[in-house]
């Protein structure tokens, strides 16, 4: 297993910010005779500045595993990961502390990013305004609705203006207005040079994505100009009806 933060080269006009090479990951069992599950068997992926990349795949295909490895929160067995710049990660399940208020949550994570008190406050106000949760800043996380919790979860990933944004189904629980606002924000970030990587299940979102990778059979396939297995299945089901 190898992870570096060395600068990666520029491809065309865009700089590669994250690259995973020949990644392998098997989940083992704690029990001696338990089953081990291979998830990634040599996955390659690279993400460039200023693009919005979608990661698709069937349930259990290894999308979240791949993202966690790229973020650095999960160890891989074989392969290399190279990262450049700062990372923002929005996990699928909000990983927040239930008994902290929203403001305290910003302070805790902002300190981790190395931000000053003023920068944390500014980021909190800006994101609360954009995602419309200002009135909940003094609420405890466990008192928030699922959608508002997800807004905070997303905001924590965004608050330090990262170079790479890794989002695992970030809009779960969002209402339509917030969903649209989220896509505006993602597009603005990409326009400013941020690489946005997003795990997505929604086929309608393909038009918003610059590139699409499908995780299938433990490998990553570039399917930007193709239909994915799930889309083909969806088409077939549509034809049958």
């Amino acid at each position: 297993m190898e992870t570096t933060t060395a600068p990666t080269e520029t491809v065309g006009e865009s700089k590669t910010l994250v690259r995973g090479n020949a990644l392998e990951k098997t989940y083992g069992s704690r029990l001696p005779l338990g089953r081990s599950t291979p998830v990634l068997t040599g996955a390659d992926i690279e993400v460039r500045a200023g693009e919005i990349v979608g990661i698709v795949g069937e349930n259990g295909s290894g999308k979240s595993t791949l993202m966690k490895i790229l973020v650095g929160v999960l160890d891989h067995d074989v392969g290399t990961v190279e990262r450049t710049g700062t990372i923002g990660w929005c996990p699928q399940e909000p990983l927040l502390y239930d008994r902290l208020t929203v403001s305290e949550t910003f302070r805790l994570f902002g300190a981790g990013y190395g931000m000053s008190r003023e920068e944390i406050d500014a980021a909190k106000r800006r994101l609360a305004d954009e995602l419309d949760f200002e009135r909940y800043l003094d609420y405890r996380v466990d008192q928030l609705s699922g959608g508002n919790r997800q807004k905070v979860n997303l905001s924590i990933a965004l608050m330090h203006d990262p170079d790479v944004l890794m989002l695992d189904e970030p809009y779960t629980g969002f209402d339509w207005e917030t969903y649209l606002r989220f896509w505006d924000m993602a597009q603005d970030l990409a326009d400013d040079g941020t690489a946005v990587v997003m795990i997505s299940h929604l086929i309608e979102e393909r038009s918003r994505l610059d590139r699409v990778f499908e995780v299938r059979d433990g490998l990553v396939h570039d399917v930007t100009d193709e239909e994915t297995v799930s889309e083909l299945r969806s088409d077939r089901e549509g034809d049958d009806e």
Binding site: R99, L100, R107, L108, A111, S116
Partner: peptide
């Protein structure tokens, strides 16, 4: 601007969090 001390912040906020563990 001075960044917020991580250990002190995590410690202080952790204390508050556990004080709210009823």
């Amino acid at each position: 601007m001075v960044s917020v001390n991580r250990t002190a912040t995590a410690f202080g906020i952790g204390l508050r969090e556990h004080a709210r563990n009823y």
